[in-house]
Design a protein around this nucleic acid. Structure first.
Lengths: 195, 195
DNA sequence: GAAGAGGCTTAGAATAACTGATGCATGAGC
DNA sequence: GCTCATGCATCAGTTATTCTAAGCCTCTTC
């Protein structure tokens, strides 16, 4: 038994675009540019030999084929997401422990202050730690926010540009323990930091 | 609603490897090397934070997590494959019309002779044509086997090395109409040619 | 104990993906 | 009815991922 599977990343772009009814918003969710989403969807359409969206200047609409295709794709993703939740340890319900390296200017960034004082989120606990990715390995920490991406082999990395502070934009690196990256709390954390 | 989705191409490698119980056979199915499958599976395991296979020197075995994860992934792929079959035109049951460009030495290659004489497959019809990808655009042909990959913009390309002939190996390019690439008949054709 | 099969690892090469700029079309605001 | 803002498409260039090829190790078979 083999399957005829279209480009899977194109499916992800398609599903997100259909959910938002916008390439731009889908792109935000997927942390890429609208152009990338556009290209993925186009590649998918080419592979299928069918148009999935009707494009007008300021909006997109599903075609008949797109409307017909979408529910199954969504179902498939739900099945995968559910199985992943069940199989991968993730956080098993506990809060995400975020370390904020001493090199970062917490004071300049409201969201960091709120995370440390637990006012930002009920599922993320921030605290100041020394700048050492080894803290992720021995279980004390789930994610570490720092300024450099050195000695992070095997760890998941997100490049963050934090806004909202008085000093304008502050770039940072969020290093995450394998198995945590991608789960709900991690996605929320990234969204909070980028806000 | 957003999903926690692991690397989707890793899932595909995982499913194929579990089905064959072999990285090598999975690699053949996916038209890559075993190393590539190994890397995909490893990346997936890292993302999940769980081992899916137990590796021994001559075989792989599913771990408990892998055994638990597999059925859902398989279900998801079946859903996608079914929806794709239903939505994408594909061949709609007719035979795949393969053109063999005059530049190719049909005589030297048994499989080509058998395809032209309809003895190789009941769902593929081979015939000799002039070497022009435009034949794919105006509907007369589904795929074209030729020696060069020129002027194939927007078309799907497979690099084939045909064996079995008296003259040893013969490299060729299979150019396929969008919407046909990936469907069963196309996969079978590629497999036949590479055999 | 040599040969062979299967999986792992790695560097480097090939490929795919992403970005950022630009252009176009549409609708909103004045 | 201009002008502006928004959103999608496309392109070239860059970046990042993915793949291959080759070597290594272990176990099995003869």
């Amino acid at each position: 038994m083999t399957y005829r599977l279209p480009p899977l990343n194109g499916l992800r772009a398609f599903e997100a675009a259909a959910r938002h009814m916008s390439f731009k918003h889908a792109a935000d969710e997927l942390c890429v540019t609208a152009g990338a989403v556009s290209q993925h969807v186009k590649a998918l359409e080419t592979a299928l030999g069918a148009k999935l969206f009707r494009r007008s200047a300021r909006a997109i609409a599903l075609t008949t084929e797109g409307r017909q295709y979408l529910p199954s794709i969504r179902t498939a993703f739900e099945v995968i997401a559910k199985a992943t939740e069940a199989t991968a340890p993730g956080l098993r319900g506990r809060k995400l422990r975020l370390g904020i390296a001493r090199g970062l200017d917490e004071a300049a960034c409201p969201v960091l202050r709120r995370l440390v004082s637990r006012k930002e989120s009920t599922e993320i606990v921030g605290s100041r730690v020394k700048d050492d990715p080894a803290l992720l390995a021995d279980g004390g920490l789930d994610a570490l926010l720092r300024t450099s991406d050195e000695s992070c082999a095997g760890l998941h990395i997100d490049r963050i540009v934090m806004g909202g502070g008085d000093t304008g934009w502050m770039p940072a690196i969020l290093v995450t323990r394998p198995g945590i990256a991608g789960c709900r709390q991690h996605r929320n954390l990234v969204k909070l930091l980028r806000a």
